[in-house]
Design a protein around this nucleic acid. Structure first.
Length: 321
DNA sequence: ACTAGCCCCTGGGAGC
DNA sequence: TGCTCCCAGGGGCTAG
């Protein structure tokens, strides 16, 4: 699931590929994930407003805020993409095949990949076969290539709004500070999480209003590294341990970026390749495995924390309640 | 103001 | 092989 490192990897790559290109057409088969300003698109009629507001604009740059990719356009508008659980942005040579397969009821045009980017060995690249039926949004670009949104579960959200006040837009204004910014100091971190003194640390770390960009995978890995039980109550955690959490957040988010994201689930880079952070998990989805901490000997457990599954070592991760 | 739980959605895996 | 059931979980929302 795309968290800060995955979204950063995507945004950085797109910022190398897209600037200067003009959007010449837009196609979608799933309008309810699209927004113009704060309004959700309900049908095809409103989709034409969505198209009109981007067609003809050039991409100026691509950046990231929290788990959102922001595509800044020459028209003064910004396209925001939140990939949620299974979404990811791909860039390449796509074309639309208007014909409908036999026995296929859907009128949706199939969008398929002309180039095979990823060899389809051992079935791993289900989504990257010769045709990708999970593409729900296509921006056709002036160089003949496309930027597309692939999303199995259709949770992703795409919004278009005026860049001028994008920090104030309803999609971004509630977000907490960026943990990788240099001015994000320990005292700021402490101030942020103590806004939820009674909260469980894992839940608070994942709260985007408290801190932007941390999700389930990185919160598990951070708390493992810091040696804190995910259900520890924020106000009961000693200052020195908060320091450890603070340091681990920076280390693990940077590690995720260095491995170009986590492709355990559906996330892919814009060229369709996988990131590698999933090969370096210590606890996430490691239930039943031996704790990788030296001489610990604990067995990784899974519990529900705030409705999410949390993975941790019950032996060395201390619980403060 | 808080939290627990539902909802959106569909592929994958387990069990029978 | 194929059916049913459960699970994955970000974030918006509502009910308590």
């Amino acid at each position: 699931m795309p968290e800060l490192p995955e979204v950063q990897t995507t945004a950085s790559k797109l910022n190398e590929l897209l600037p200067g290109l003009k959007i010449i057409d837009v196609w979608s088969d799933y309008f309810s994930s699209l927004y113009v300003g704060k309004d959700q698109i309900k049908n095809k009629k409103y989709f034409s407003d969505f198209k009109k507001s981007v067609i003809g604009s050039k991409v100026i740059s691509v950046s990231r805020r929290a788990k959102n990719v922001l595509i800044h356009l020459s028209s003064g508008k910004t396209i925001l993409v939140h990939m949620k659980m299974t979404g990811h942005l791909l860039y390449g040579s796509y074309s639309e095949r208007k014909t409908i397969k036999k026995n296929q009821e859907s009128k949706i045009p199939e969008v398929w990949l002309k180039e095979k980017w990823v060899p389809n060995e051992n079935k791993e690249s289900l989504l990257w076969d010769s045709y990708n039926r999970f593409i729900h949004l296509v921006f056709s670009l002036s160089n003949g290539k496309s930027l597309v949104l692939s999303d199995v579960r259709k949770f992703a959200k795409v919004a278009i709004f005026e860049s001028l006040n994008h920090e104030e837009s309803k999609h971004l204004r509630h977000l907490g500070p960026e943990p990788l910014e240099e001015n994000f100091t320990f005292s700021i971190f402490k101030g942020r999480i103590l806004k939820k003194p009674k909260g469980k640390i894992k839940t608070v770390l994942m709260d985007q209003e408290i801190l932007a960009g941390v999700g389930n995978i990185y919160s598990d890995e951070v708390l493992f590294e810091a040696g804190i039980h995910p259900e520890s109550v924020v106000s009961k955690i000693p200052e020195s341990m908060l320091q450890d959490i603070f340091k681990s957040i920076k280390i693990l988010l940077n590690k995720g970026i260095n491995f170009r994201g986590d492709s355990m689930s559906d996330y892919r880079m814009p060229n369709g390749e996988k990131g590698e952070f999933q090969n370096h998990h210590k606890v996430y989805r490691k239930t039943g495995a031996k704790c990788p901490k030296k001489n610990c000997g604990g067995i990784i457990s899974r519990i529900k924390v705030g409705g999410r599954s949390g993975h941790f070592c019950p032996k060395h991760q201390k619980k403060f309640v």
